[in-house]
C-alpha cells in the first residue's frame, strides 16, 4: 500500500521551455492521458499509468518523472 502510494505520487512533468508540442508522446500514450493544444501540453494524472514511455522517447527529453 505504501509502495503503491509512492508510485502514484510520482508523476510525469513537462518542461514547456523544452517541449516542441510535436505530439509524439500523445501518439504512444496507451491510456490516452496526454493532451496537446497547439502550444500547451497537459497530462491527466488520474489516468496516467506511469509507464514512462513518453519520458523515454521524447525527441527533446522535455518530459520527466518527478519527484
Amino acid at each position: 500500500m505504501f509502495l503503491r502510494q509512492q508510485v502514484q505520487e510520482r508523476q510525469v512533468v513537462v518542461d514547456h521551455n523544452l517541449c516542441f508540442f510535436c505530439g509524439a508522446c500523445v501518439a504512444i500514450c496507451p491510456p490516452d492521458s496526454i493532451f496537446l493544444d497547439n502550444t500547451h501540453l497537459s497530462i491527466d494524472d488520474k489516468t496516467c499509468t506511469r509507464c514512462e514511455r513518453c519520458v523515454r522517447m521524447c525527441p527533446v527529453h522535455a518530459l520527466s518523472m518527478e519527484p
Binding site: 510535436c22 509524439a24 501518439a27 496507451p30 496537446l36 514511455r53 521524447c58 525527441p59
Partner: peptide, 22 residues
Amino acid sequence: TESQVARWGGLNTVPPMADFYV
C-alpha cells in the same frame, strides 16, 4: 500521428515503441 479522433472512435492506434520513430 497524435490522432485522438481515431481513439475516440474505439480504434487502437498506439504503436509499439520498437516501431515508433522519434
